[in-house]
Amino acid sequence: MESSFDRRTEWGLLLVRVVVGISFVLHGLSKFQMGLDQVAGWFASMGIPGFLAYAVAFVELIGGIGLILGAGTRVWAALLAVVIAVATFKVKIANGFLGGESGPGYELELLLLAMLLLLVLAKRSAFSLDHVFASKARTHK
């Protein structure tokens, strides 16, 4: 029998997963809308190989959708954690935690990273496609 704490935890994980997923879907879409060649140029100007702009846009968009649906949650969360960690260290860390005249800080990136790591470490959520597929696999054995 499931405790009310477990049920509340499930709802909390769902909320985190969906909000983080929406955030990354929008970040990925913005890269496609700006033009991936332009994003690749911006990456190159920071010393990041330009071709990674295509990979990052794909991971953000598809990974965000995966998080929203709860499909491949741990894998997508881990990939997105790498993306946000690199972005933090290459772009935001020099601005400080809260930022300043040089631009925004890394406060929000750190929050996203923590939430992604929570999703990597958490058990499979009952409110996810991961759970549905695992349940079907168990019943077909």
Rank of each mutant, 00 (worst) to 15 (best):
Met1Trp: 07
Ala134His: 07
Leu110Ser: 13
Ala44Ile: 02
Lys136Pro: 00
Val82Pro: 00
Val39Trp: 00
Lys136Leu: 15
Glu10Leu: 01
Thr73Phe: 06
Ala77Ser: 14
Ala77Val: 08
Gly99Ala: 00
Gln38Ser: 13
Ala78Asp: 09
Arg138Phe: 04
Gly28Leu: 08
Ala137Tyr: 09
Gly105Glu: 02
Met46Ser: 06
Glu107Ile: 05
Lys141Asp: 12
His131Phe: 11
Gly50Met: 08
Phe97Ala: 03
Gln38Glu: 12
Arg138Thr: 09
Gly41Ser: 08
Phe5Ile: 10
Val75Gln: 08
Leu26Tyr: 06
Gly99Ser: 05
Ala114Val: 15
Gly28His: 12
Met34His: 12
Ser30Phe: 02
Leu117Gln: 06
Ala77Thr: 12
Asn95Tyr: 01
Leu67Thr: 09
Ala53Tyr: 02
Gly105Tyr: 03
His140Ala: 15
Leu117Tyr: 04
Asp130Pro: 13
Ile65Asp: 00
Gly47Ile: 06
Ala114Tyr: 07
Gln38Ala: 15
Leu112His: 10
Val75Leu: 15
Lys123Leu: 01
Gly72His: 03
Pro104Cys: 00
Ser3Lys: 07
Leu113Val: 07
Phe89Val: 09
Ala114Gly: 15
Lys31Gln: 09
Leu98Asn: 12
Ala53Phe: 06
Ala87Tyr: 05
Ser30Trp: 04
Leu113Ile: 09
Lys141Trp: 05
Leu80Pro: 10
Gly66Tyr: 08
Phe89Trp: 13
Val86Gln: 09
Arg124Leu: 05
Leu121Gln: 12
Gly35Cys: 09
Glu2Trp: 02
Ser3Gln: 02
Phe133Asp: 01
Val91Gly: 08
Ala94Thr: 11
Met115Lys: 00
Phe43Ala: 07
Val83Tyr: 03
Trp11Ala: 10
Tyr106Val: 00
Ala126Val: 13
Gly100Gln: 12
Phe58Arg: 01
Val18Phe: 10
Phe51Leu: 09
Val56Arg: 00
Leu61Ser: 14
Leu98Ile: 11
Val86Pro: 08
Gly103Trp: 08
Trp11Gly: 04
Lys141His: 13
Lys92Glu: 00
Ile48Val: 14
Arg8Glu: 04
Val132Tyr: 11
Gln33Asn: 14
Gly103Ile: 01
Ser23Met: 10
Leu52Ala: 07
Ser30Asn: 10
Ala94Ser: 14
Ala85Arg: 01
Arg124Lys: 14
Glu107Gly: 11
Leu110Glu: 02
Gly47Glu: 11
Leu110Arg: 02
Val20Gln: 09
Lys92Pro: 00
Gly50Asn: 10
Val83Gly: 02
